[in-house]
Structures are given as structure tokens and as C-alpha cells.
Design a binder for these strands. Sequence first.
DNA 1: CGGCCGCTTGACTATTATCAAAGATGGTGG
DNA 2: CCACCATCTTTGATAATAGTCAAGCGGCCG
Lengths: 240, 240
Amino acid sequence: MLDTITLKSPSDAAVMLRPNGLSTAQMFATGCPHQPGLRKVAANETLWCEGEQREHIFIVRSGTVCFSRMLPDGRRIVLGFAYPGDIIGIGSDFHCCDAQTLQVTRLEAIPAAAFKRAVNDDPVLGKRAAAAVNQALDAAYHHVVVISKLSASERLASFLMGLSVRNEKHGLSPLSVLLPMRRIDIADYLGLTIETVSRTFTMFKNAGWIALDQANIVIFTDIQKLRALASGECEEAHRP
Amino acid sequence: MLDTITLKSPSDAAVMLRPNGLSTAQMFATGCPHQPGLRKVAANETLWCEGEQREHIFIVRSGTVCFSRMLPDGRRIVLGFAYPGDIIGIGSDFHCCDAQTLQVTRLEAIPAAAFKRAVNDDPVLGKRAAAAVNQALDAAYHHVVVISKLSASERLASFLMGLSVRNEKHGLSPLSVLLPMRRIDIADYLGLTIETVSRTFTMFKNAGWIALDQANIVIFTDIQKLRALASGECEEAHRP
DNA sequence: CGGCCGCTTGACTATTATCAAAGATGGTGG
DNA sequence: CCACCATCTTTGATAATAGTCAAGCGGCCG
């Protein structure tokens, strides 16, 4: 049976051990031993912190994970999100960001050492792991492009179209998305403030490009326009 | 003897073949055959374009390479620079950005297929290649942090301190750097305009933090201040 | 029902972009 | 060797996008 593990740690960066004195590995080791690997984690829990040694590779089965970093003065940067099907935690030996759940999230945990061995033994798995890292690199470059040159509306459109494409890939409708994250996560991901994100949502709504239900369900009523905005090929609309 | 190859292609994205009809591989094949691998390339030449198939892995021996992308409407984003000692061109099978030389640059070219074979045969080389990709990923995440949350002066300080650290690693003084790139490259790298970059240089100079010689040689006269700015821990100075 | 949290909206500010033009710098050819 | 031209950098004036501060709205949960 799955049990919700409640991790007690805040997202304080530069803390190697959590307030309860348990490392991620130890916390996962105290889960239910007869279901090795599969874990259910509550919302808003920290999976790991920046600087910690990598102890597990996770496969997201359900829910959403948010990756972020903190500057010394408290400014927060969201580097990305992980959704069901994503393999997270591959890369160098130490975590380069914090990871937190945004919802109740089911994860399959593979000890880093075991994963490393498996990668060495199985060339196919090795290729898949390498592909995942390359994909992450491509995503990071795309992220750089989005936040360094796009306007607020282009950034939000790009974000929404990314979710739309993901929906389509998973056999869902690309014409609407469910936002599992709060405005502050979107803002910190796009290098904006919550106010600007909110205003841009309102602008999209007033322009007839989207419809909003409960602030978390977005229906695309002019996806062509949004796609054009997202790819940065719009001359008009806030970039004349 | 090394011969300067003059590549004729512009940095037009989405062009698989260059105006002269030669692919990168063919152009390199037409170099001097008795010195396989080592090539000298003139300044402002394109090594590869975004979308092209990866044909070589290069080791930079001297000079500087600039990686960039173009948006449909002409906006340009610089994703990074490569300096002597850097291995460039590892990653997925297709180039995700353009690569251009900023100076006369000597490169050691290794055919992608040969590199792939070598990586498969030699686990040590494999680990080094994986480490290089992870390093690129870390750098990309750092880049995201810099351009999404730092002010213009913090961005420029971060850029300069990065060069300072590189100097130190190579046994040179960390107290001055030589900029092989133009202001436009710095601007497109930091998500700013040339005017803002120039003004920020002037501001640093007037504040007594740097001295400029010929606009391309920067001497750090208050490196502590610059380091603090770069790490985003400054409350004052354009962020009260 | 009330308080809390997150989202939206408003008024105002400020950092950076844009437009424009005047120095530097470097290379070429007379 | 110098003048001229092209390119790059700096500086100035103005505009605009996004940030900041502040307050009101709405849903959710105890």
C-alpha cells in the first residue's frame, strides 16, 4: 500500500541535512519496504536540496515536481517542472537545484548507485540516460532564449504552448491545459513577477486568445495566435 | 603547415547546406590532409549552423567560439563562448545552435563517428564526455539564473567574474581579463542591449570598480565589489 | 462564519530599450 | 604615411515594458 511520506524540510538552500536530521535516502529508506521504489509524496515537500549528494534517480508516475534555485538575497528562480513519465535526478553527482512537489506525487525511486551500475551494464539504458541529459540541455537552452529575449506575453505564450504540446504528446487535447503550479512558480520560471503574469493572463483573456476557469484551467481559444507569439515571430502585439 | 580556411557561409539559421554547397564535414575534408584534425579558421566564420547534423567534435586550441541562436524575427541570443581547452560539439546528433569564431581560431576536429566509437570503447573517455555534458547543463542553468533575475550591473559583473575565474584556473591573473568578443556578443549573451552594456561598463569605471583599456581589456580595481554583485548578494547598487 | 491564502487590479516608479548622433578604432588604398 | 571609410563604442534624450507598493476579491478550510 502506498503511504504518503511527509517530509519536514523547508526549501532552505545550502543545508545538507534537513531539520529532522534525515537525508533524502534515509527518509526513503524508512518508507514501506515491501514496495521498494514506489513512493507517494505529499504536496509542497522537498525531494532534495541544491548541493546535496545525488542519492536517487526518480521516475515521476503522477503529480508535478518543481526545480528551483535561490539567490543569497532570497530571489528565487524556477528552472523547470517535471510531469508524469519524466526521469528526474540524472546528471552530475551533486544536485544543482532544489526539487519540490507541487501536488501529491507518486515517484519511483532508483538508488543512484544502482542506476549507475544499470547504465554501465545496459548500453540501451545508457543511451536513454544520455538522451535524457541532452534533452535537459536543449530545454535549458530554450529556457535561456525565452527569458533573455521574449516579452512577457511571448514568455507566457511559450510556457502555455509547451504544456499544450506535452498534452498532445500524451494523447490529450492540446486546446486546454491544467496548471498544477501557482502564479509565483510561473513567474519565477519566466523571470517575471506574479503581477505581470496575472496581468498577461488577463490580457490574453480580454484579447480572446484564452478562457480561464478557476485560474488553473486554461482553454485556448486562439491557439494560432498563441503559437505565433510563443515562437517569437510576432511583430505586433507588444513588439512593434 | 596550417592554412586558414575561409568559410563563406553567413549565420543564416535553418540552412542545412551553406551557400557554397559544402557541408562542414566536406569543408574540413578539403583542408590539408597531411595534418588531420588540426585546423586554423579565420575570425567571424561559421563552424556549424543550428539544425545541421553533427559531423565533428572540436577541441579549441586557441581563439574563441561563440554559440548563438536566432529568432524568426532576427533577435539573436548568445548561449555561450568556448575558449582554449574546451571540447565543443558534444551533445545530441543535431546542432542546437550556430557556432562562429570570434578570432582566428585553431581547432582539433574529431569526426563525430570516430568520437562516438572512442567513447564506447574507452570508459574513461566516456566519463569525460558525460562530465562535459553535465558541465554544459550546469552552465546553462547558471545562465538562466543570471538572465532571469539579475539586474544589468549584476549580469555584467557575473560575466566578468566568470572570465576572471577562468583566468585564475589557467594560471593567469584574475585581476584583469581580455574580452575577445564585441559588445553586441556580450549584450546578446546577457539579454541586454549594447547600449546598456556600454553604459554599465562606464558606470563600473566611474564607480572605481574597473579600469578600461581599449574597451577590450578590463582591469578589476574592486574585485570584491564585483564578486558580491555577481553572486546577487548586493542590496544596494541598483537594487535597494 | 471567519480567516488565510492566492489571484487580480490599480496607481505609480524605475530600469532598460529605442532612437539618434557623436567619438574611437582599425584597416585599406592612394 | 596619411586620409578616408567602415565598424564599433559611447553618450544623450525619450519611451515603454515590467516592477513595486497597495488594496480588493474570491475560494477553501478549519
